[in-house]
């Protein structure tokens, strides 16, 4: 079984965001880049699956769509344990463009399970995994919070609005994963980092693909009014304010 984990290279989640060119572009100066948190959890679960000898997982590939500057993030994924990496050489576009690149990578390889995070922490689109599965015309399971392999199929717990479902799906499929899939993201060990330098990282050219949307402009939220502080022994006053000023009780 071969697994592909799609990785988005995103600004560290503590980044203070800034925009440039009249608020039409994200200003990435001084930004630290990380593996998108959900993708990192997907990779962690994938490594757990591979390490369990009862699972027939032979190879784990990670892929990203991005410029050369995204390679350290791919190397990090290799250090965590992926066997090889692919970078589609493109300035990342909208979700449709990215999904089209990934579909091309999948068509050039043979993957039984393909994992994407439920969203990326930059554009919060929640779109790439679903688009990719539709382009490939294969099943997708979204909001995956646990996954195991049983008789060559995946047995998945997914969150539905109001509960959980256990579903099984034959390969190939796209799993769109969320929190819960792995307990905590794995941190690369020194040995992993050393080995990652020698692992194959293939760069492939982008294919032609149309964007369907365009991020036209960014706007910072309105600054909010300062917090009204109430003394700890004036709880009654807080209740009064919530009831009569904020009118939320």
């Amino acid at each position: 079984m071969r697994i592909l984990v799609c990785i988005s290279n995103v600004p560290d989640t503590t980044t203070k965001v800034k925009f440039s060119n009249d608020n039409t572009a994200f200003d990435d100066s001084g930004v630290q880049w990380i593996i998108n948190p959900w993708d990192e959890l997907a990779l962690t679960r994938t490594m757990e699956l591979k390490e369990d000898a009862s699972n027939p997982v032979s190879n784990v590939t990670v892929v990203t769509v991005g410029p050369a500057g995204a390679e350290p993030t791919l190397r990090k994924a290799l250090a965590i344990g992926a066997d090889d990496a692919i970078r589609v050489d493109a300035e990342s576009g909208d979700a449709h463009f990215v999904a089209a690149q990934l579909a091309s990578v999948v068509n050039d390889g043979e993957y039984d399970m393909i994992f994407c995070g439920i969203e990326s922490s930059d554009y919060n689109g929640s779109a790439v995994g679903g688009m990719l599965s539709e382009m490939l015309d294969i099943p997708s399971v979204s909001a995956v919070s646990s996954l195991r392999i049983e008789n060559g199929e995946a047995v998945i717990t997914r969150d539905i609005d109001g509960g959980k479902e256990e579903v099984s799906v034959p390969t190939p499929f796209v799993g769109v994963v969320q929190k819960g899939i792995a307990k905590e993201p794995r941190i690369a060990a020194m040995r992993g980092i050393m080995m990652a330098r020698k692992k194959p990282l293939q760069v492939v050219p982008a294919i032609e693909a149309e964007p369907l949307i365009h991020y036209q402009e960014y706007v910072m939220p309105e600054p909010k009014a300062p917090c009204k502080m109430i003394e700890a022994d004036q709880v009654k006053e807080l209740v009064n304010l919530l009831q009569n000023e904020a009118k939320v009780l």
């Binding site: 965001v17 554009y123 991020y215 939220p221």
Partner: peptide, 15 residues
């Protein structure tokens, strides 16, 4: 829509 997990808004043009 919100982007960067609520740190900013974006105006998205449908093409």
């Amino acid at each position: 829509k919100k982007v960067f997990s609520g740190k900013a808004f974006a105006k998205v043009k449908i093409l």
